[in-house]
Amino acid sequence: MTSSPSTILRKAFPVPAQPAPRGRLAAVAPWLVAACIVGYALVAGGYPATVVGFALIYAVFVSGLNIFMGLTAQVSFGQSAFAAIGGYASAILTTQHEWGWLPAMVAGLAAALAAALAIGYPTLRLKGHYLSMATLAIGLIVHEIAVEWESVTLGYLGISGVPPIDIAGYEVSSDRAVLIMLSACVVATALAVARIRSSRLGRAFAGIAGSEDAARALGINVARYKLVSFLLAAAFASLSGSLFVHVVGYVSPEVFSLHMVILSFTMLYVGGIGTVAGPVIGALVVSVLPETFRSFRDYQDLAYGAALILLLIYAPRGLAGLFAALDTRRKP
């Protein structure tokens, strides 16, 4: 987005000794809204807790996407593939090979990173649309393998009976325990993204987002940093895939389809691309809103696609941009 690099740069090079009261509401409001939604789900339990749980898993996934798209201004349509690799690795290793959840998750992460390296290394040196198409293709390929490789993935049937995560002998299986664990994951993810954004790495990403030629002229190794950004995004995708299978206890090829890709883009743009809070608030709002009107189900992808086009044209900065605009209006 044209606006995101400038916001990133402002954050990356803070003007010393100048507290910014103007930015306070914009910074806090999304987190307050997110906390309210999660808090409500914690109290209510049951179905709301399930919906918010899914939203939190998506928040991890979209935060990863945000590193690649928001901070580095690249596009990938294949993040669902990395979530699928992580998810299937966790499911297969824990159910068929008796692995613990942590080693299985790490193995999935390694496999996802290897796949990201194989696809990213040749394409990231080239213009954006090569990468876009290659990533779109890898999404389809992983889906195809998940369907075809029946001896391991059980095809369309899917793998059920994936055990829940247990931490120090305590099994995280109740609604509330799952919500608390996922919230902790989302907070950790957000902290990691914030840390990345303000680090040397984040500044290199912002430089690439602003202008690849200028970044190159400043001595930034554009291809390498793009690859790092892509790998980071794949890592978060893989972790969210693993979280999903442990929370739901089931995985099938449909879980990681093109639907997931479009949904995550809508979340990213609703929340505000390039911000730390955007993916989290976007994931929560986009997941919770459709639940308020039931008949919406059939029209979901249609609505997400149309909403995405409208957002791209008319509100490319999303909710985070809205909060910021409200703030500026209040204190001119």
Binding site: M1, T2, M69, A73, Q74, V75, F77, G128, H129, S132, L136, L258, I262, F265, Y299, D301, L302, Y304, G305, A306, L308, I309, L312, I313, P316
Partner: peptide, 26 residues
Amino acid sequence: PLWNRNAPMFVMILATLAAQIVIERL
């Protein structure tokens, strides 16, 4: 509309893929 707003290339790609999904669903 995106062209007139000088949207970056990846936004254009994203918008056309979204159009693909909308047409599929319709």
